[in-house]
């Protein structure tokens, strides 16, 4: 079971969180004309990398904040966690 550092609450067990998928996906702006392909990319297509992955976790049984977690998908090592609005270099 992972041990995830919530930037709002501190280190908590994985069972307090819900997984939220790829954190680099950006929703197309509202009212913007976009192609079917662009939309499908946003809704369906995700990379499944082996290694570093920036992903969303929702601290549902804690502060209820969505956070971003940089995790290695094969070793489960967590490098860094960010608040939802934190800038990531």
């Amino acid at each position: 079971m992972l041990y995830i550092f919530c930037p709002h609450c501190g280190s908590r067990s994985q069972n307090e969180f819900a997984y939220g998928g790829d954190a680099t996906v950006k929703r197309p702006e509202l009212n913007k004309e976009i192609s079917d392909q662009e939309w499908d990319n946003f809704v369906y297509l995700r990379k499944s990398p082996r290694g570093k992955h920036l992903e969303l976790w929702h601290h549902i049984s804690g502060c209820r904040q969505w956070i971003k977690v940089e995790r290695d998908t094969s070793t489960h090592e967590i490098f860094k966690t960010y608040k939802a609005n934190e800038l990531i270099e």
């Binding site: 819900a18 939220g20 969303l56 929702h58 549902i60 209820r64 904040q65 969505w66 939802a84 609005n85």
Partner: peptide
């Protein structure tokens, strides 16, 4: 969770 997702992210 859905509403929080849109408001926060």
């Amino acid at each position: 969770s859905h509403l929080e997702y849109y408001l926060q992210l």
